[in-house]
């Protein structure tokens, strides 16, 4: 079964396929530039000790983002 969730709802070791990046402006654009585009697979690796940010793996490298940014990323789980 396929459900769409926002990335911040995923737990470590869960993975998904990006379906949409919400929002606009500089941050939105940066997320695209970093390879967070539709169809890319993304794994949540871990959450920082204090609960934020998160460390995800995308296109074979590690990227960290805050949950606030992650909430704009919709993934299919």
């Amino acid at each position: 079964m396929v459900t769409v969730k926002s990335l911040d709802e995923l737990k470590p070791k869960q993975k998904g396929i990006i379906v949409k990046i919400k929002g606009s402006g500089a941050t939105h654009r940066r997320l695209l530039d970093m390879g967070l585009v539709k169809g890319s697979s993304i794994d949540v690796e871990r959450v920082a000790p204090l609960g934020d940010p998160i460390d995800v793996r995308i296109k074979g490298y590690h990227l960290s983002l805050r949950k606030e940014e992650a909430s704009n990323i919709l993934v299919e789980v």
Partner: peptide, 9 residues
Amino acid sequence: SPFVMELPP
């Protein structure tokens, strides 16, 4: 401001 940062190997 947002936090989007690469964690290099």
